[in-house]
Design a protein around this nucleic acid. Structure first.
Lengths: 213, 213
DNA sequence: TCTGTCAGTGCACAGTCGTGCACTGAACTC
DNA sequence: GAGTTCAGTGCACGACTGTGCACTGACAGA
């Protein structure tokens, strides 16, 4: 599994960074079964193998760690979209969703954290996630603007459609996370439904009047 | 504000029920600014005006109270849908959303609780909400089946469309809750976007092939 | 009127929490 | 090699937590 058995960083700064990452990873892991607000500073440090007070060498509070975690996990999502933009893209709902399922499974904890804290978390954490998500929607809107059939669309309408697409995709992600057995029939059902929903939205977009009279 | 100044129930059972309701209301109120998991049993009882141990006369644990609260607040949502079903219904996206905004404002705390705990809460609470929401989607699918143009639709497709509609509406609700000033421009923008999204979905439904060849 | 029920009280306990403070010792600078 | 920085330690503290137990006293049924 592990690429290198034990890198064991030598420089002090590197050691500090490693501990910081350990804290972030541990917090992400612990928030797998309860909300982020429900995990304590002591618990994180205990699991991470340091003493409680050493926590403050890295973060001023649990809330600060939460915000950092939100930014960190959002990078995953953004990277996903960036990759999708780079290669020509399937433009096919079925293939896109297959990619999505793979990514969700690969970063399950990260997605779970985002889903949990988007509405449930401390205001600062929730706000950080919402902001990043809005940014992601805007980027998608820009992509849509480049799509052949939509070049003459209103900017507001593009945002609206992008928002709907993101919402629908996120819903699929959330349902994927709720599925018990990753490879099972329930998952296939969720994916099939999501695929239809994407197709339905695209049909709607095709019928949409680009600009009002 | 209050209809009756002090009903002051006489029977013992009624007094107990009142305290129980006070506990539920208090918990709902306290979970306005933090997640349900973040509020303590002592805090609820303190605010409700009873001693901590008296809590156990009503609920076995905070988790049990959470599940009761989920069921309670879901009744609001169901009532909303039932009323919408009773009267002929606007069938008009604009009017439906106006009703939605009014209802959300009237039961803001309840909606906020549901949004928070749907993914963030204890598994039992989250599960209770998810189940009720799925039920609501099914009911909507039945309604859709009665709609003139959709009578020959596949059951799965109806569920799919209902799911998408519910998802989109919930997203609007969540954005309404995030709006700072209830009457302001931001709210109007959210509503306008939601309205367009509903129209787009309906356009997609109109173009949907009811049954595959 | 007597008696049992039970919602709410008061006290106690052990456990966990966040955090202040003085410290150690290895990694760094000069 | 001498001196500085600072990630991590160890101890202590007061506050708060959930919950067990014996209790009180108003209500309910006889």
């Amino acid at each position: 599994m592990s690429v290198a058995p034990a890198p064991e960083p030598t420089t002090r700064a590197a050691r500090k960074e490693r501990t910081r990452q350990t804290l972030l990873d541990t917090a992400l892991e612990l928030s797998g079964d309860r909300s982020f607000a429900g995990i304590s500073l002591r618990e994180v440090t205990r699991q991470a193998g340091i003493v409680p007070t050493a926590f403050y060498r890295h973060f001023g509070s649990m809330e600060e760690l939460g915000v950092a975690l939100a930014a960190d996990t959002m990078r995953v999502l953004r990277g996903l979209l960036r990759d999708a933009r780079r290669n020509p893209g399937p433009a096919n709902a079925r293939d896109s969703l297959a990619v999505l399922v793979r990514e969700v499974r690969a970063h399950e904890r990260a997605f779970r954290f985002l889903a949990r804290e988007r509405y449930g978390g401390q205001p600062t954490v929730a706000h950080a996630i919402t902001t990043e998500l809005r940014l992601l929607t805007s980027e998608l809107a820009v992509d849509l603007a480049r799509t052949p059939g939509l070049s003459d669309w209103d900017v507001d309408d593009l945002e609206m459609a992008a928002d709907l697409l993101v919402t629908a995709v996120l819903e699929v992600v959330l349902e994927l996370l709720a599925v018990d057995r990753p490879g099972g029939a329930a998952e296939a059902e969720v994916v099939a439904r999501g695929e239809k929903q994407m197709r339905l939205i695209m049909l709607g977009m095709a019928a949409w009047k680009p600009r009002r009279a």
